[in-house]
Design a protein around this nucleic acid. Structure first.
Length: 94
DNA sequence: CATTTGACGCCAA
DNA sequence: TTTGGCGCCAAAT
């Protein structure tokens, strides 16, 4: 099945959807898996404009260790991560 | 169709 | 080591 036309966005969402609970992925990792390791920005851009409630995008954090952001409230994202059992060092707030 | 935005990443100072 | 600036890609307007 290779390319399948619906590359990036669809793929990115698919990857995030596969993230197991208690685990976090970086935007870069998602972008790399989506086909472009430099499209880390595009990943965030897609999520920011097209947020999907069916996708645990709150499990996606920055490579620097930042939580990144969340259309549903950054505070909520942090809370979710903590509840999932993610190490606080994995997603520094500021 | 072209331009701006946007939840980032990496290099340099 | 920390802070700042530039670069990159895709989607939305």
């Amino acid at each position: 099945m290779e390319v399948m036309k619906k590359d990036f966005k669809q793929k990115v969402f698919n990857i995030i959807r596969k993230i197991p609970r208690g685990k976090v992925l970086t935007y870069k990792k998602v972008a790399t898996r989506a086909g472009n390791p430099r499209a880390s920005r595009a990943v965030g851009g897609i999520l920011g404009t097209n947020f999907d409630p069916t996708i645990p995008c709150h499990r996606v954090v920055r490579t620097d260790g930042g939580v990144g952001g969340y259309n549903r409230g950054i505070n909520n994202k942090i809370k979710l991560l903590k509840k999932e059992g993610v190490a606080s060092k994995t997603f520094l707030l500021y």
